[in-house]
Amino acid sequence: MTLQTLLRRRIARIERGDDIRSSCRAPDDAAFGLPALDGVLGGGLAAGALHEFAGAAGAGIGLGLAAGRSGALLWIAAGDVFRRGGWPYGPGLAGLGLDVGRLLLVVARDAVESLWAAEEAMRCKAVAATIIELAGDGRTADLTATRRLSLAAREGGGLGFLMRERPFLGTSAAVTRWTVAPVPGPADGWGGLGDPAFDMRLTRNRRGPAGRWTILWRCDERRFALAAPSLDLAAPPAERPHPPAAALGWRRAG
């Protein structure tokens, strides 16, 4: 970890109002285990913050990140989202290396009730990760709603994942915003499907620059890996959410 990221994390902690001494604790951020990504994120996806994923593959990424953490896992969605998108499937989750006994599903009536339940779940210190899934672009989770979720996640200290089916064009208080799409994976040499691959586009990052990577989920090792011919680390300027002049923005909005 570079000195820069360490200092940056410390500043973030001070801004959050934590004790400076507590910043000496081991970071409990959710790392991908990939230096290229984790460096940009300042060590991994920040715990106690909200992260937003657009695209149906987002839930799988969230589960992969949460699998190794201890504590309960809540998956919240409206009943018709589960019915349309499929129910989380125990044998498949177990194959991912997830302890399914830790997973609790909350079947809400609609998006508003999902948001309420997610806020309550994120506020709970015993919950390691909360996944809330919204249909369509999830416009119910606007700036106010995501701000509430962020505050709840900060209070609880767990990972907050907001999954949208499609990218939402409005503003959001999430610390990072991703667009995830599955891409053809590399051949496994036996004519089979092999490891799944995802195009991860980081469109907003309060801790650093945006970027775009192609990552694999290594099924046998149960970890993420960078696909061999990686795309450029930094996104082309057009994809940056802010011009460099607005770099101070992430600090102010903390």
């Binding site: 839930a59 799988g60 589960l63 589960f82 019915r83 998108g85 499929g86 129910w87 989380p88 499937y89 125990g90 044998p91 498949g92 989750l93 177990a94 194959g95 991912l96 302890d99 399914v100 006994g101 609790l104 994976g185 496994d188 036996w190 089979g192 499907l193 092999g194 490891d195 799944p196 099924c219 046998d220």
Partner: peptide, 27 residues
């Protein structure tokens, strides 16, 4: 029902280098 923790799932028979069972199953 959420009241009691269920017994664990046995991981699926791995007959592939990729995931053998889906993450989400349609009702």
């Amino acid at each position: 029902e959420a009241a009691a923790a269920p017994p664990p799932f046995a991981p699926p028979d791995q007959d592939s280098l990729g995931p053998a069972r889906p993450l989400r199953l349609l009702e």
